[in-house]
Design a protein around this nucleic acid. Structure first.
Lengths: 113, 113
DNA sequence: TCGTTAAATAACTTATAAGTTATATAAGGT
DNA sequence: ACCTTATATAACTTATAAGTTATTTAACGA
């Protein structure tokens, strides 16, 4: 089970997000993934290692190639954590709503922006 | 509008996630947030600055205090991006499902783990 | 077996992030 | 005016992350 540290910091890099976006279309090999970037192959390999460690991709072995695809576990881990914040924001909003309804009816303001 | 880089890398730090978890309960000042951590006040102040830059918290001025609370925009930005991955994983799963249904009926395996 | 293609690893450099202590700012109470 | 409390900023240190080039490993085809 990969940590949230690894997962979120994997997601923090724009190159890695671009790789994930590419994999959202479908499987791809290391060299295919490297193509669009002005970056060396070893750099991409390391990004893939980070993504794998974060539970965001999986790799199979196919001869000399290592096709990558998206993995669920990382995405789900990140999601579960953010869910907690969403819940809290929702609750706070309801609380504010209640206060406003009680004191000055009809004064809805955008909060928590 | 804060960048996904900032937002995800803000979420990558355990101290900052702990701060957010605390704020999920409700507003708190800098010193209140600093209490639970074996860390100096300036360190916490910097974490808060990062969280603010990431759109994850908001601060008001109240005399000499700066109460912090959760903000929506960062959470929503992160969510929207992950939604894209969720969608892709879902589609891949459906595709796999179709293939399995067609070739070997009744052979469901756990995929994309 | 040899050359080629695909990917990984090693060694290194440089930038950034996270922490420290010391100091500054600014509002409040007396 | 002065002391205190709350927070921010500055200067510095150290660890880590991201990139580079050079080299290694491994599977494949001739």
């Amino acid at each position: 089970m990969q940590s949230l540290n690894e997962t979120f910091s994997a997601l923090a890099d724009p190159t890695r997000r671009a790789i994930l976006a590419r994999l959202a279309i479908g499987e791809a090999t290391v060299l295919e993934l490297a193509k669009p970037f002005a970056m060396s192959q070893p750099a991409i390999s390391r990004h893939l290692k980070v993504l794998e460690g974060a539970g965001l991709i999986l790799r199979r072995v196919e001869g000399t190639k290592r096709p990558c695809r998206l993995a669920k576990s990382g995405v789900e881990a990140a999601d579960r954590w953010l869910e907690m914040l969403r819940g809290a924001l929702e609750k706070n909003y309801q609380r504010l709503d209640a206060v406003l309804a009680e004191t000055k009816p009809g004064n809805e303001q955008e909060e928590n922006r």
